[in-house]
Design a binder for these strands. Structure first.
Lengths: 183, 183, 183, 183
DNA sequence: TATGAATGAGAGTTCATTCAT
DNA sequence: TATGAATGAACTCTCATTCAT
């Protein structure tokens, strides 16, 4: 059922009609509502599953990658993979709708610490600037992924790459020296 | 009326109910439809005005700024000013809806050449890499602006700044340590 | 203006938008309303003109035709000419809408006596049965004309001809007198 | 629900507001739309049922009536029964609206052959003239039925009877025998 | 517990009618 | 007196949500 919902979200965004989701899942709409009394519960459930995997990937990457910046890059890649297939996510994240509060909270509670950890590791290693909050980065990456799947001329991954690159310790200042610390 | 529509778009996105727009404008829905037979006409009208100003600003900035990269940065700032108040823009830009085609086309026809000019000037000056199309940049900046006005913890301008910074000729690459990232 | 309205009625029926009528007439909608406060007044005015001509034709035909049945046939032809271009007429005639009452009344007051005269003359001459009221005949002919202009496979005139033929004194039952009709 | 729709059609024509139909049926508009996604589907459903009965009656009448002309007369009576309660039918039949195409086609496909059969049988028997197409007859009868239920002074049946009588082989011209019809 | 029919609020759009200019 | 911009009721259709089976 979650897969069905995820598929519907991919196809029509998180605002996909409940009927479509039910149809994809091969159940009645009543069944959807039984399990997910509010639409947001369903959305939460769909995202929770994937958010969880993503969260778990953070520490692993930090261990297995060639440095924290590389780990951050890989993790952001996973995040992008996640987001690119969920083009309604930004809408949900910016929604003031009370029903989405829970999802929002969960989402942030779960991922922001992981992202913070990666950012801090990279900052500590002097690889990136340290003045961007994980929340902002995730939000930005999320936004960059909007509509990525439907526009062949748009490459979200490419832009996210540039954004991450923009985090590098100050490259901008025509560094002749080693890219040392803060800009 | 355009101001009312713009305000409604700010509050609810470009999908704001026509009734809401009419209410904000203090007119009846019929009046909206008299001036803008299709919803898309209204959207176009709201955007056209601002897109025009933006387009005109491009060449000026190139003349008055301290270098093409600075001009690009300033122009992107204006673009962000524009976009931050139009969080439905991304939706419109990715919409396959035939009614939005006109806006889409106009938008791109008008702004992409300006942005291209700025990008090329900066690339020619060796200030930035030359491998990002104006369309992609504008799309990316547009996306980064989504929901910016409603979330105090999110600073679109900051992220756009990082993205633009990521365009700088590869400072990063002059670093000798090749930090083994995916980039 | 009446011509414009008539043309609009031909094109879209008597329910033609007032705006269309105004546009055809080259005046503002306000002008239409000034002259015809209610839509029905306009309809009445449009029909009155033609109904009047039709009414006047009755006595003339009775004088100039080869017998009352022929006169009736000719008059019905004129009636059909009138109706075929007014496909909204039946709708108006059957409308319970109070606003149409005036038209209805006028229409009947003016034409039914004429038609009655023709029918009675033909009945008196033994050419037709005498048991059909003029009201009914006019109504029937009116109905047969509905939609005549938009369907090439439908020939209202042909059917009206059959209907009138059906009025013949019972020809079916052995008439030998060849009543020299138009049929 | 079909009965409610039929009743609404009787009262207000086939253009009866869906809300009215829902109200008559004692259901919500959503229920109407669930069963009949497009307005035309509802119209089709209402008519289909009755058209079907009518079509089936044709061959039966040919077997059980006193001659083909009598059968034709009986069948036309049934047709009139059908039509008198559907005063929006003419509008639908002449509508260019794509949505009505299906109904139109079905209607003609189903009834014209039946009517043709009856007409041909009567023509072969020498009872009627053979130069009127079934389509035209049905259209004419249909038109004569418009508004019949709302006007006590109008008797569609009477007029249809005259029309059918007008079809008799030219009685007017020669019949000396009593052609034993129902008339 | 699962189903899906039913509900009805809400959105877009049209057009008769009013009224300030 | 003529105009046409403005109004808003009314109509179709969609879909979240409820609830009897």
């Amino acid at each position: 059922m979650l897969e069905a919902a995820a598929a519907a979200f991919v196809a029509s965004g998180v605002e996909a009609p409940v009927r479509d989701i039910a149809a994809r899942a091969g159940v009645g709409v009543g069944t959807i509502y039984r399990h997910f009394p509010a639409r947001s519960d369903l959305i939460i459930a769909v995202y929770r599953h994937q958010v969880e995997s993503l969260a778990e990937a953070g520490p692993d990457l930090l261990k297995t990658s060639a440095g924290p910046y590389a780990a951050l890059g890989r993790w952001i890649d996973l995040f992008v993979d996640f987001l690119v297939t969920k083009h309604g996510l930004a809408a949900v994240l910016k929604s003031e709708n009370a029903g989405f509060e829970t999802l929002h909270t969960y989402f942030l509670d779960r991922l922001v610490p992981i992202c913070t950890e990666l950012l801090e590791a990279a900052a500590t290693a002097g690889e990136i600037r340290s003045d961007l909050q994980a929340y902002q980065l995730m939000r930005g990456v999320g936004n960059l992924c909007i509509g990525a799947e439907s526009d062949p001329r748009y490459d979200a991954r490419r832009l996210v790459e540039l954004l991450i690159k923009g985090l590098r310790t100050d490259s901008t200042d025509r560094t002749e020296h080693r890219s040392g610390n803060r800009n």
